[in-house]
Computed example of a mutant assay.
Amino acid sequence: MSTAPANTNKITLRTADNQEFEVDEAVAMEFGTVKTFFDENPDASDEPIPLPNVSSKCLSTIIEYCKFHLALRARDDSSSVEDEAKVYDEELIKAHDNESLVELILAANYLNIMDMLDMLNEGVAARIKNKSVEYVRKFFGIENDYTPEEEAEIRAQYEWAFEGVDPDED
Results as ranks from 00 to 15, higher is better:
83 D>K: 15
71 A>V: 00
49 I>T: 02
135 Y>H: 12
108 A>Q: 05
47 E>S: 13
24 D>P: 02
157 Q>R: 11
108 A>N: 00
101 L>F: 13
60 S>Q: 15
34 V>L: 01
114 M>N: 11
134 E>H: 10
30 E>C: 12
91 E>Q: 13
64 E>P: 00
69 H>V: 04
159 E>G: 13
87 V>E: 12
43 D>R: 09
128 I>E: 00
157 Q>P: 01
159 E>D: 15
94 K>L: 14
168 D>N: 11
92 L>W: 05
125 A>Y: 09
33 T>E: 05
139 F>C: 06
84 E>I: 08
31 F>K: 04
47 E>P: 04
108 A>M: 01
53 N>F: 00
17 D>V: 05
47 E>I: 02
31 F>Q: 01
147 T>L: 07
81 V>K: 15
118 D>S: 14
37 F>K: 02
142 I>F: 11
6 A>M: 11
69 H>I: 07
12 T>K: 14
2 S>G: 13
28 A>V: 03
156 A>M: 11
97 D>Q: 15
67 K>C: 09
42 P>A: 08
143 E>Y: 06
95 A>V: 05
84 E>C: 01
71 A>G: 04
142 I>E: 07
169 E>F: 13
156 A>K: 15
131 K>W: 05
46 D>T: 14
131 K>I: 00
129 K>V: 00
37 F>H: 03
154 I>Q: 02
99 E>N: 12
118 D>V: 15
